[in-house]
Nucleic acid binder design. Structure first.
Lengths: 346, 346
DNA sequence: TAATAATGATAATACGCATAATCAAAACTC
DNA sequence: GAGTTTTGATTATGCGTATTATCATTATTA
């Protein structure tokens, strides 16, 4: 059977353009890349070469150009979970959106490192684990970092691969660039609002395992307590039980800062079962955007993590640091959203 | 200030691996690329080389590999719009999800080709078009195809770059692989439902500009008319005006098939303004998933495009055809969703 | 008019890898 | 033990481009 495509035409090269234009290949390259070096091309020659390029339909070979240029203009994106969310409004999407926008502006493509759902055992070593990341000029990472991953990352950094993490991450033995949000300041703001409304005793309600960003919030809370001279405590119960809530209410807690909306829901339900409702008997705010659910009820006070901006900043940090600068980090402000869930105590 | 990272080391090359392992660069290449040629590497040597690669964290240079004619286990994803959706426009997400899943299973990474938000007029020639796609082993494409893009694509195909389009696309002068859904059959099903309810006169309401998938629907409609022997017409008005709706209703139209939900909304509003409401005075169905809005009202009859499966199939087609087989195409069935919007005519 | 500077190029090379061609040594055949 | 095959590699080359070093010619200066 005859091939359908008409005898695959090889694409024209600079050499062919050069021949047709009666110049050298180097001259053609110069026409393309402007007068960076000490090579000068007069306008007449330039025009002639451009004309031949148009006639031949010349398009540079990206691979060759990248090979000669030393880097790929590819940024890796490594998430510990699939990138494209099944639920429409996913927590990670805004980060990725910011990454994509900025990469596009700076003319980088994104290499999405996919993770097989089930690890298939016997892969050649050179394709496994961290090493594949080095295909890219640098890598943006998102997600939780357990101990094994921390080791991988340390090695990668040790090899000199540029990495920027979204969210503050602590990797002992290595210096890591990251983009974070100022959770401490935002949490302090939340506390300040409670105090301004007259709440005398507050509670910071957190998840049992505190990752870096949770610790930032907690620290902001403690600093805020100190600044305002008000009284409050941090609790990280394994479960938000009725007993726990009863105890806190009995102790006089009227204002709450909750690490995420799941904790908030648990508290609200347990409190309601005991006849306590917001915003009358207590006030509260959520310390961030919804993680587990699609959206927060409109009346809940909370702060917004600048996810889009964080994504953008991560790429900026990465491309800026590609020259070999030492790791830097950036902290962006959160936006506070007031809501009916904060009022004056009874 | 002393650099924090240990003096960024350049990425190791095959030559360096070769030196450390006491073999030639060619031998290293052979270890990577299996025993294709007449070069034989015994297992002892192979293991030694692999070990050195692991020690050094060697990773092949994508560009060099492409230039020399090798493969990268990278699939390109080219969309004509940003990939990561703002919350409303998530029509594409299921496709991408399927692509990601399948790529991960088959151990490919994805190269997301980013597009600058605003094309800056005077871009150098070599940045334009589709030239950068060639770093990947093959490319999945999504989105509308205007004439200029069609030319780009034709050239790319002529050069032998494997491409699979999501959605049927017609590129004169080239054979293109694509994954489509059986819009014709699904539309025929919709018509059959209307006819079964007793509708004697139906209308196919389409957008003015019909792309391939719209034409498929239209054809399915016409075939269905012929099969059922019922009467109906195709209309592609510039705008769904009150006059237009009044005319159709006066002509006795009681069943409608609408190309998308925007048309449906326009019709419903205009009809309501004239005192006509569904499902009493007319019935309708939407021919596909919501494109412009997030979700379709639950009672609207419509069919579902198997977007996840289409994404999956596109990668299958691509990796299957990477050996150089001729282009193939796949058509997947849609799923019909009944709803209250189809009833018996008055 | 000889010396110097500016102009307009070209030749040579490197980038990292795949692959064809080649070759030395070891193992086998008769 | 001379020829033949097999094994285990190496050397050489090309992919298409960017860039540096180099050079011939023309214009300018002293």
């Amino acid at each position: 059977m005859a091939p359908v495509t008409p005898a695959r035409r090889k694409r024209p090269t600079q050499r062919e353009v050069a021949e047709r234009a009666g110049v050298s290949q180097a001259a053609v390259s110069q026409v393309l890349n402007g007068g960076g070096g000490q090579v000068r091309i007069p306008d007449s020659t330039r025009q002639r070469v451009l004309q031949v390029m148009a006639d031949l339909g010349y398009v540079p070979n990206v691979a060759a150009r990248r090979l000669a240029g030393g880097h790929n203009r590819i940024l890796g994106v490594f998430t510990y979970e699939p990138v494209f969310p099944s639920s429409t409004r996913d927590f990670f999407t805004p980060f990725l959106q910011g990454i994509e926008e900025t990469a596009a502006e700076q003319d980088y493509d994104l290499l999405l490192h996919t993770r097989p759902a089930v690890s298939g055992g016997a892969r050649p070593l050179y394709r496994e684990g961290t090493s594949r990341l080095r295909l890219a000029d640098g890598t943006v990472m998102l997600g939780q970092l357990d101990d094994a991953r921390r080791d991988d990352l340390r090695r990668l950094l040790g090899e000199g691969h540029p990495v920027v993490f979204i969210g503050r991450r602590n990797v002992p033995g290595a210096e890591l660039s990251y983009v974070t949000a100022d959770y401490a300041a935002a949490t302090g703001q939340g506390l300040a609002r409670l105090v301004a409304q007259g709440h005398r005793r507050t509670l910071y309600l957190g998840a049992p395992v505190g990752h870096e960003s949770a610790l930032d919030r907690e620290q902001g809370y403690r600093e805020g307590l100190h600044r305002s001279g008000s009284f409050g405590e941090v609790a990280r119960p394994t479960e938000v039980t009725g007993t726990f809530v009863a105890q806190q209410l009995a102790a006089g807690v009227t204002g709450l800062l909750m690490e995420n909306e799941r904790l908030a829901k648990a508290w609200i339900d347990a409190a309601a079962a005991q006849g306590h409702h917001w915003p009358v008997q207590y006030s509260f705010a959520v310390l961030g955007d919804p993680i587990y659910s699609g959206e927060l009820p409109a009346e809940w006070a909370h702060f917004r993590i600048p996810r889009l901006a964080m994504g953008r900043a991560s790429v900026g940090l990465l491309t800026g640091g590609l020259g070999g600068q030492p790791p830097t980090s950036v902290s962006l402000p959160c936006e506070w959203v007031d809501g009916r869930s904060i009022g004056a105590p009874e």
